[in-house]
Design a protein around this nucleic acid. Sequence first.
DNA 1: TCATCTCATTGATCCAGATCAATCGGCTCG
DNA 2: CGAGCCGATTGATCTGGATCAATGAGATGA
Lengths: 244, 244
Amino acid sequence: MTVATKSLLSNCADCPIRHRAVCARCEADELAQLEEIKYYRSFEAGQTIVWSNDRMDFVASVVSGVATLTQTMEDGRTQMVGLLLPSDFVGRPGRKGAAYDIVATTDLIMCCFRKKPFEKMMIDTPHISHRLLEMTLDELDAAREWMLVLGRKTAREKIASLLNIVARRQPTFSPHGDVVFDLPLTREAMADYLGLTLETVSRQMSALRKAGIISLQGNRHVTVPDMARLMEAAGDDSDGGHLI
Amino acid sequence: MTVATKSLLSNCADCPIRHRAVCARCEADELAQLEEIKYYRSFEAGQTIVWSNDRMDFVASVVSGVATLTQTMEDGRTQMVGLLLPSDFVGRPGRKGAAYDIVATTDLIMCCFRKKPFEKMMIDTPHISHRLLEMTLDELDAAREWMLVLGRKTAREKIASLLNIVARRQPTFSPHGDVVFDLPLTREAMADYLGLTLETVSRQMSALRKAGIISLQGNRHVTVPDMARLMEAAGDDSDGGHLI
DNA sequence: TCATCTCATTGATCCAGATCAATCGGCTCG
DNA sequence: CGAGCCGATTGATCTGGATCAATGAGATGA
């Protein structure tokens, strides 16, 4: 981490995830309290942050980079159950151990809080626990959306659904014009997310490319010329009609 | 509903889900406040309680019976994303519409709260919002567990996993000796939960019966002579070694 | 510059579960 | 009682994605 980054990060007011993370609703004095108990940790791509069932004595927000939550069966089958992007929250207040393996898939910076003081703050600071409830409900919605993908979609629809989600979480996203981004996942990680094999992922990526729905520059860099066609390939209603 | 049931239900202190539902942590005075804004609704098996995207101006707890949350694609493929048993919470504070179809699969009684007053109470009553956070985190864990089932398990393991979950949520459950219960779902609903067809569900139920892992009396009534064998068939570690 | 490693692509074959179809058993209603 | 219905079972066949296997394309480093 450079000196400039370190100084940027030390101050919550300048934090890139200030308005989206678990601290989003905090007032200046509450932020000052959080600032007292926070510390940063950084990880390299590929590092395991926590192993499933290990004791985990902190909770954290992803500041930059991407991490994954995965579950593994005894025979080695693995399923990714969460994709953590900047501002997402990690860890469970009120429980000792980690329920999943947490792995950094890119270089990663996390803003950590020791669990005990954080739990104490949650009790006297409703702004934190309300924001955490809201974020947890959003994650639950995302998990249920993913259950539809895993249970009922074809391989091609699964790939298109994943590309759609990653595209929409880009900071520069706009639904019109080309959408360009880097996939934060290997083909194998995509397969683990989608309940497929990596060969099927590769074949379906090629199929979407041949159909002109995406174009690829290298393995990771994706261009989507028409988001509506991508959504159609994902089996989603192209007019994502929301009731607000 | 009989007169006896009605009288039983009108008093929170005697409520069968008093210690497990969203009100579990409430003090007597808080309970009295809840009592003011609550009302009961009952539904018959098969009735749809709310349609996806409909306005939903209440939240509720399941008092007795079973309901399901399902998502449907335009072409009719459906995936169940939640199974609501007594004490489970329904609805999302802070959002106008329902995200899923909610359907009663047995006769059902719900304890409802109008959304506005409930949201107001959540702000002044940390016991409620903390309990709701805890329940939502549990649901998120259950949803992620289910993602592993949907993404990576075989049809036989899926069926065994579902039986395992239903067996463990019986009020009379004990891990030793015969476990006996009624499935609250049709074969088709099981298929929607598991991302299978109803034919495959039927075949795998027969296979588990022929293997002696379960026995069936009629279509719905199940006896499990040995929970360890069922867990093994589900692909789960038979010593569910938990770190508390 | 060439060996090695990792990640990805592509081909050939196989099989678990989907699909299509017939039958069964219990229930309700005329 | 028999007709019709609904949920469930069982059989025959098909197919999407898994599996097994070979090859390619960048990156790293001796």
